[in-house]
Write a protein that binds this DNA or RNA. Structure first.
Lengths: 348, 348
DNA sequence: GTTGGCACTCGGTAGAATTGAGTGCTAGCA
DNA sequence: TGCTAGCACTCAATTCTACCGAGTGCCAAC
């Protein structure tokens, strides 16, 4: 079994080979059956030539050390979060089946449309591939320079500022004035704004005119509105696919409800994904991510990197007993294809 | 009880007063308790001075006529879709509680931001008010005239057409060319497009230049891309709020899954809402809407009308045993506030 | 250290008995 | 004729029991 060096958490010490094998057998079978796993089953399944009694005594140790738990006396063991963590950290990389590989390939060959549409469809794809709920996060454009702006007169006191960023995203902002702006004034303000903002990023300071006429006022208002948005969260796009899979993954209705309630809050989902990435993890199991309602979930995250720059992330949300190998492989594959799709001659 | 004239379906004949009262009592109690309702309970609850035996014999008739059903012998009755239909058609209009009224008022007084944000938040509001899943549909802009367009050069062979409609919506389309367009050419094409498209609607024919130079080619491609979208479905925006309520409303996990799976398909949700509106209904119960996976659901729809023009709709999706009175009142109230919010001096 | 053996635990299941809510029917009454 | 009280009947749900068996923990022997 290919070992990868331990990740950050470090709480998880190494186990001797036999314990590791037993733990792995328990995790594998429990992921498969969703049932507690007994010692005899492990003894016969694993390739260790060992009696069930020996397995049992090892299990006692594993339980004492926090890798396994017993739902009740006289039941088999189930893995704890720590047990899953060890399993994942020592898992050899999974592979994507050929059928799925084909499906991904076909998808990215045929997909067309705007970035948002592609991301949304990618989310659906990833969910179908894995039968878990999928999250695709498109990075915000806070750092992307402005290519063009335009101020459009909707009504006398109501203008619309349309901004195009170099990453291809388009954002609109309403600008309301307390005076009736003429079409000429709006056109002039639009011209000035364009000259003023082009090439700048949202965090840049811009020299706005200080005059008190209508045009200057329009320009000031427009710039203020544009810069008012939260640079970090705002502009980030979330696409959630396969939320119905939640109902398949968990049996308790209450759990389903809680998870769905979390998924409804997009900002929260973004920060969840971001938190996990910040911790340098690719999987957060159970309570590792600190979101209590998701304590029976595992979250897999794969960053999307284009030209060395973070451009978003794809994620999967499933029960802690999810198929980590397959799911991680699928997430990585989709993330790579996504990067390639937008990397070649496009933007993300 | 205030009677409203029967709606379109017409299959539902009138019942004599006593039967109607009994049916109503059954529906009310079953909505409340989710349990089959027995004759004695009806006899004591309703203000009819009638013995349970009489109620029973009436129930036999109601069952024969299809308003009630029996889960099994020796159980009480539950309403059928037809029973709910009668109930809804003869329901006096519900009222919105003062607390809720205040909540709606506060919401619309404080809400700000772009149309999309308002609609999304409205959906959440409506869901919170009713504890059902809410759907807000913003009408497409197919019929809205174009206020402004702009072609922006993203990369040599990749332009972005940004279109602003009079309703305040902004749409972007990628235009890909097989030649390297210069900035000057793009600017010229942008100018021509603006002149060409301004004031037109998407269903209008536009005289495109037939020359074979880069600029003309750009203009042709851009117009084609813009007009390629499906005028009916595309551009319509759906905002679903409170999908976690689905898990509360139905007990079978399988039902929850099916309903969520439907909600994932936004186009389908739009046509569901549209279908119901087209039928002139405000409620579709059980199988009335023809979407089999939603046969245990009822859907309430209230159109949003601004200046006499349809501008979208708000909807609620719950179990057939939902609180029709409250829910319909809430949907109507929110719809009215929405119309007012965008009607006064804005657009929808 | 490993293993076979054994007593023990305890959730799950199956069956029987019981309960009780609710029905349908009928005979009698206004 | 319509209503009702009464009654036998039905059947899901509940409770109780017994029991099974998967699985454990422990121990003595190898």
């Amino acid at each position: 079994m290919a070992r990868r060096p331990l990740k950050k958490p470090g709480i998880v010490a190494d186990l001797d080979a036999r314990k590791a094998t037993i733990l792995e057998a328990v995790v594998r079978e429990h992921i498969d059956t969703a049932q507690p796993v007994g010692s005899s089953s492990v003894a016969s399944t694993s390739d260790l030539a060992i009696s069930s009694a020996t397995v049992r005594s090892e299990m006692v140790t594993l339980e004492r050390e926090g890798y396994l738990a017993q739902p009740h006396t006289s039941a088999g063991r189930i893995p704890t979060d720590k047990g899953y963590r060890y399993f994942v950290d020592h898992l050899q990389a999974g592979v994507v089946g050929v059928a799925q590989q084909q499906q991904i390939k076909d998808f990215f060959e045929n997909v067309r449309g705007e970035v948002e549409d592609v991301l949304a469809q990618t989310s659906t794809l990833l969910s179908q591939l894995t039968s878990y709920t999928s999250v695709v996060v498109g990075a915000g454009h806070a750092m992307s320079p402005i290519l063009s702006t335009q101020l459009v007169n909707l009504e006398a006191r109501h203008q619309l500022l349309v901004t195009v960023f170099a990453d291809g995203s388009v954002v609109k902002h309403s600008v309301t004035t307390n005076f009736d702006a003429s079409h000429v004034e709006v056109a002039e303000a639009s011209r000035q704004l364009h000259a003023l903002l082009i090439g700048t990023t949202l965090d840049a300071r811009v020299q706005v005119p200080s005059r008190s006429d209508h045009v200057a006022s329009l320009v000031r208002d427009a710039v203020a509105t544009l810069h008012a948005q939260q640079p970090t969260v705002d502009g980030e796009q979330v696409f959630i696919g396969g939320s119905s899979k939640v109902a398949e993954s968990f049996d308790g209705v209450e759990t389903v409800r809680k998870v769905l309630a979390i998924l409804e809050q997009e900002l929260l989902v973004v920060s969840l994904v971001q938190d996990i990435l910040d911790q340098g993890l690719s999987v957060a199991i159970g309570s590792e991510h600190g979101y209590e309602p998701l304590s029976s979930c595992a979250v897999i995250v794969a960053p999307v990197t284009i030209d060395g720059h973070p451009a978003g992330a794809v994620g999967l949300l499933g029960p802690t007993r999810m198929k980590y190998g397959e799911a991680m492989a699928a997430a990585r594959a989709v993330s790579a294809h996504l990067a390639h799709h937008f990397g070649g001659d496009e933007r993300a």
